[in-house]
């Protein structure tokens, strides 16, 4: 291995300079649960490891008038322990809770989960469904982007050299809203999704669905936002017919590979089932508030 440096900048600008200067040989480092594995397996050989955890705000959770913002490097266990975030966005917490072990969640963050670019990342579909926005900083200043615009392929993101996600913002929750994430895995813990489904819905006072977002993981090179599946629910009472149509739209959107966890056909079929069950959980939660 060539010389490697470790830097822990204490401001966004210092981090941006280090990242921009080193270009593709720089590696953003937060919880380290992917980067350390990649270094160990010699999949990457970074020239500079830029630990962003000392950048102000990157580990903080805040709320303003019902809208939450949390730092991109906030560890999963911290997010799960946050009462306000957990009760407002239980579906995001469903996703976070499934990332690795307690030890891994003690360090792993949603920013890392998104930027590692795995199609099967558990928090990404639920963040997409939640309409989460990434607050990105970089050499050209600040910008925002929806989470669905970040992952462009397995291990690839739309972030340019020098950019990193500082925080995520979640919109204020209307009444009668619920979200959920479910995944299919052969084991109950410590496994990678065969199919994952993130769902976020809002109902009116009569129980008619007024807004929905449905995102699938592990069924395409990137997590998917399936507008047709959401459209199948909007304007309905989320009855059996709507759920069936929603499931069919999910299956139609899938473009999976066959691997040791499941065949292409299995993923396409079960995407409908997992999405339906996730909608049912989100529906129950939406009716409770």
């Amino acid at each position: 291995m060539d010389d490697v440096r470790y830097e822990a900048p204490e401001s966004p600008d210092a981090a941006i300079s280090l990242l921009a200067e080193a270009g593709s040989s720089a590696r953003v480092f937060a919880g380290g649960t992917d980067v350390m594995v990649q270094i160990h397996a010699e999949l990457i050989d970074p020239g500079v490891i830029v630990d962003i955890k000392k950048v102000p705000g990157i580990m903080d959770i805040s709320e303003s008038d019902g809208a939450y913002t949390f730092g991109a490097a906030t560890p999963g266990m911290v997010l799960m322990a946050h009462e306000g975030l957990s009760s407002t966005w239980p579906g995001i917490i469903d996703g976070v809770a499934l990332i690795g072990s307690i030890q891994v969640k003690g360090r792993a963050s949603i920013g890392g989960n998104v930027c590692n670019g795995s199609p099967a990342a558990d928090s990404t579909p639920t963040m997409i469904a939640a309409n989460a926005v990434c607050n990105i900083v970089g050499p050209n200043g600040e910008r925002t982007a929806p989470v669905e615009d970040i992952v462009t392929g397995p291990g690839k993101t739309s972030l340019v050299d020098g950019e990193f996600i500082l925080s995520f913002s979640l919109p204020k929750r209307p009444a009668h809203s619920g979200d959920a994430y479910l995944r299919l895995t052969p084991r109950t813990e410590m496994d990678i999704a065969v199919v994952g489904a993130g769902v976020n819905i809002t109902l009116d006072d009569d129980g008619t669905c007024t807004a929905a977002r449905i995102s699938l993981g592990a069924v395409a090179p990137t997590p998917l936002l399936v507008a047709e599946a959401a459209d199948a629910l909007i304007g309905t009472k989320v009855d059996d017919a709507a759920l069936t149509k929603m499931g069919e739209a999910c299956s139609a959107a899938c473009n999976p590979i066959s691997d040791k966890r499941g065949t292409k056909e299995y993923r396409i079929k079960t995407a409908a089932v997992i999405a339906r069950r996730a909608v049912e959980i989100a529906l129950e939660r939406a009716r409770e508030n």
Binding site: T33, M36, G100, Q103, G106, R107, M190
Partner: peptide, 24 residues
Amino acid sequence: TGDCGACSIRLDGDLVCSCLVLAV
């Protein structure tokens, strides 16, 4: 690689795998 947990320690109270933490 953070899968087996044999290297579990507490880091400022947090339960973590010490193979996934940089010494620095």
